[in-house]
Design a protein around this nucleic acid. Structure first.
Length: 614
DNA sequence: GTACGAGACTCAGAAAGGTTAAA
DNA sequence: ATTTAACCTTTCTGAGTCTCGTA
């Protein structure tokens, strides 16, 4: 109930602030649209673009919901499509022909689709019985620089081995090249720019040929055979070498990510399948036949020393089944959540420090949708935290703030170095506990010194099998979506209008919340933006008009306004809720999910009845 | 019990690529 | 009608979560 009331309060707030937000709207150009009909659409795509940042996980949850909704009203599009096709000068026959082809293709696809959800599940741990594939696709060989392109150090031409992706700097080079400022990559940069330009200016035929060549690679390497069904592979290409960037202030940024050789690669497939052949003159590191894992190929990456995998596409059985399972666990939480919340509220009074910290952490995870927060190796990654790894400097307690009592102010970098900034009124017991946790601690000390994700998850799984911290995100997002949909009116047109308005409000609200406290959010991003601006400014000599636009883009980035969010709806909202809603409202599913999404959620679209209840 | 590290998988935004609407 | 910009989709790979085995 805690979480839900929290979500609701956001809606209420969004309505109250409507007037205020209109002002902002003007500045965004949203209100500049001419007709009222168009206006709705304008709002739509603004939402679709999702060019807004989110600093709070609870807000994230909200976005997931709003994103679902934002696509719900594209019903109008179909009419337009028809109008357009009429306008074009194609003959009726051509149109008819194209339509027939489309229908045929669709039917074919439908028939080929593996309805794995109607089959019996394998025994525990077994992921497949038969697996055959072609192995990974290796990136093209390194191409040496042309003779007329040079690298200069301190004004002198230098031939260096590290330009070849395979090798690192030699000792001599290391002693010679000390100062980055003395490096001149100008000619190399110009060459690359010319290349991209040339690519852009290719003729239609050339482009077509390139496309066909790519398609051939996909046809050969992009699919595998899994238990007699052809399945698409998600990433069949080995990652090419290059400079590691990382997100945020990453200690390893700029390190060379080495070229992966077949000798580094482990192949996983059926014993009795056609084993993929390594490139001529090479051999695999290992060929194994482990059907308890889902990957086809793996290798160890040299920056973090972690494993990389080639796995199946999201529309595959292996991924789909897991996704389904995830939502089933979240649904189970629905029936237990009252008890679980009651318990952690009780635990807030515990004399035992571990229990008490656990309770507060759970309160945050449930109410604010914080991530679990595993500990990370210092110096190996950017300094980001989640719930369990919060440190003293990440929260500030306010007895009184903006007319609220017991306010906790959060300010930390979360996943992907995205800043979480939020001021949340909490219940007294939580506030008191936090004060206790902070006693005798310095900034840099852990807030929950007796707690880690392992302890937390162990406790959760004892409360309900399969329950972990992240289930709360799925549960809260999905249940909120369902409730919001229920609350909307039954009349479709009315409803769609309501949705449009609601989204406009939410969108602006989020923007406001975010932009107001926006100081510098992710410092490394700033420097990135600065570099971007610089680079572009050089280009501007030739192309002055672009300058303005690009600077605007750079500014946008600086303020972190641009954070794509569309994918979130792929990860937290039970698709069956949306499917059921579509069935009830007689809204075609195409309005909610695009082709990829429909493929991914094929199981949900097929099995869900109108009366589905999350 | 618990610390630790490897492994395997989900989730995430940036960038590239493709399509459609607007100029 | 053609070019360009806006928008939407796909690809890529980094960053998390969580489990499990071992000391």
């Amino acid at each position: 109930m805690q979480a839900i009331s929290f979500f609701h309060s956001h809606v209420a707030c969004s309505l109250k602030k409507k007037k205020q937000r209109r002002l902002v709207e003007e500045g965004d150009g949203v209100a500049q649209t001419k007709t009222s009909k168009k206006r709705t659409q304008k709002v739509n795509f603004c939402l679709h673009r999702g060019n807004l940042a989110l600093t709070s996980s609870a807000r994230e949850t909200w976005f997931m919901v709003s994103f679902f909704l934002s696509s719900a009203q594209m019903v109008k599009k179909e009419e337009e499509e028809q109008a357009v096709s009429k306008k074009s000068k194609k003959t009726k026959e051509e149109i008819e022909e194209a339509r027939q082809l489309k229908i045929k293709k669709k039917e074919e696809e439908e028939q080929n689709r593996w309805r794995w959800w109607e089959e019996e599940k394998y025994e525990d741990g077994v992921k497949w019985k038969f697996l055959e594939h072609k192995g990974p696709y290796f990136p093209p060989e390194y191409q040496p620089l042309p003779d007329n392109v040079h690298f200069y150090y301190n004004g002198h031409i230098v031939w260096v081995s590290f330009m070849e992706s395979v090798t690192e700097m030699t000792h001599e080079e290391r002693s010679l090249i000390q100062d980055l400022d003395k490096c001149d990559f100008g000619e190399i940069h110009a060459m690359h720019k010319a290349k991209t330009e040339a690519r852009k200016n290719m003729s239609k035929e050339e482009k077509q040929a390139l496309k066909e060549a790519n398609q051939k690679i996909v046809d050969e390497y992009g699919y595998c055979l899994l238990d007699h069904h052809k399945e698409r592979i998600g990433n069949f290409k080995i990652e090419p070498p290059g400079l590691f960037r990382g997100r945020g202030e990453h200690p390893k940024q700029g390190m060379l990510k080495k070229r992966i050789q077949p000798e580094d690669v482990i192949i996983n497939c059926s014993k009795e399948s056609r084993i993929p052949a390594p490139p001529a003159g090479h051999h695999w590191k290992e060929v194994r036949h482990d059907n308890t894992v889902t990957w086809l190929v793996s290798w160890t990456e040299n920056i973090q020393g972690s494993n990389k995998y080639i796995m199946l596409n999201a529309n595959s059985k292996l991924k789909g089944e897991k996704d389904w399972e995830k939502y089933e666990v979240a649904r189970k939480l629905k029936s237990r959540v009252d008890d679980i919340r009651y318990q952690y509220l009780q635990d807030l009074k515990s004399k035992q420090m571990v229990t008490r910290q656990r309770a507060v952490a759970l309160y945050f995870i449930d109410k604010l949708a914080l991530r679990a927060g595993n500990e990370k190796e210092e110096g190996e990654t950017a300094d980001t935290v989640g719930c369990c790894s919060l440190r003293v400097e990440h929260i500030t307690l306010h007895e009184q703030l903006d007319g609220n009592e017991c306010v906790v102010e959060f300010d930390f970098l979360g996943k992907d170095c995205i800043r979480y900034y939020n001021k949340v009124p909490v219940i007294k017991k939580v506030f008191k506990s936090l004060k206790l946790f902070l006693e005798n601690k310095q900034p840099g000390d852990e807030l929950f010194d007796r707690l880690n994700t392992s302890v937390l998850n162990k406790h959760l799984s004892s409360l309900m099998p399969g329950l972990t911290a992240k289930v709360f995100r799925t549960y809260n997002a999905s249940i909120t979506l369902q409730q919001q949909l229920k609350e909307l009116t039954n009349s479709q047109s009315h409803l769609l209008a309501a949705l449009a308005n609601m989204q406009a409000d939410m969108w602006l609200q989020m923007k406001l919340i975010h932009v107001l406290p926006s100081t510098h959010i992710c410092t490394s991003d700033d420097s990135f933006s600065v570099r971007l601006v610089e680079r572009k400014k050089a280009a501007v000599k030739r192309c002055e008009e672009q300058l303005l636009k690009l600077e605007v883009q750079a500014t946008d980035r600086e303020e972190n306004k641009q954070i794509a969010l569309g994918t979130s709806k792929l990860n937290y909202l039970d698709p069956r809720i949306s499917v059921a809603w579509c069935k009830n409202m007689e809204v075609p599913i195409e309005k909610i999910y695009n082709k990829t999404q429909r493929e991914k959620f094929a199981w949900a679209i097929d099995m869900t009845e109108a009366d589905f209840e999350f």
